[in-house]
Design a protein around this nucleic acid. Structure first.
Length: 214
DNA sequence: AAAAGACGCAACCGCCTACGT
DNA sequence: TACGTAGGCGGTTGCGTCTTT
């Protein structure tokens, strides 16, 4: 019989010590090896969203909030992609933060959290904008429930897509625009995923360029 | 002080893709 | 090609906590 519900401190310690000893992977066999009455998926989720040492929990800074907003405007509800660009944050945490804080904040400002356009105009179809009325929650080029590589679905060349500049609304030399370009093209250009440190550096560089006074 | 309602977040669920056989 | 397994994803739920009445 599988156990469900909140994890206890003892379970966390058992899982943590096992993962730090044996490493991640083979999740289905982890509960048996550790002696937990949990399914492998649950163990993986607990590790990924809570126990990993690199996780930064708690207060989300204004910079991080701004980044989430901008990335969501570009990517839609692609929480894992967004989280991948915010060091130490998990997709679950960002998803929760969006649903409980940011979407309400945008609504209070008269902005549709799905389209990032003014609520009064968000009902009107806009074929120029890649967020179409047929799927307001996702960019038009990204199929619902698809987990395919983002670089295959988001226009890679801004100059070839008429809606791109409208979407970003940043001048070509805007640091965030170049940051987004780098992340969009990253998977296509890099054979290897960047390390946590390089992601951190990338984020820091972006933040520094946005906030030179810091 | 107690009850009711709202809120926030951890965890679950179902579906998908990738990969091996 | 078809099937099974593992891992990953986003949507949703459930429950503890906080706030309001």
């Amino acid at each position: 019989m599988m156990k469900k519900g909140p994890w206890t401190r003892e379970e966390d310690e058992l899982l943590s010590s096992y993962i730090s000893r044996e490493g991640e992977g083979q999740w289905r066999s982890v509960p048996k090896k550790v002696g937990l009455l949990r399914c492998g998926k649950s163990c993986r989720l607990r590790w990924m969203n809570y126990l990993r040492p690199s996780i930064k929990r708690g207060h989300i800074s204004a910079d991080e909030e701004d980044l989430i907003l901008r990335l969501h405007r570009l990517l839609g509800n692609r929480w894992s992609l967004i989280a991948g660009r915010i060091p130490g944050r998990t997709d679950n945490e960002i998803k929760n933060y969006w649903n409980t804080h940011l979407s309400k904040k945008l609504i209070s400002q008269g902005i549709d959290p799905k389209t990032h356009k003014p609520l009064s105009s968000s009902l009107k179809p806009n074929h120029h904008h890649i967020f179409s009325s047929s799927s307001p929650n996702q960019p038009e080029t990204i199929p619902q429930n698809s987990h395919e590589n983002i670089s295959n679905t988001i226009p890679i060349n801004p100059n070839s897509d008429p809606g791109y500049e409208d979407l970003l609304s940043y001048p070509p030399d805007d640091p965030f625009a170049s940051f987004l370009n780098s992340l969009i093209n990253e998977d296509a250009c890099n054979q290897h995923s960047p390390t946590a440190q390089s992601k951190h550096d990338e984020f820091k560089n972006f933040n520094d360029s946005c906030n030179p006074m810091k």
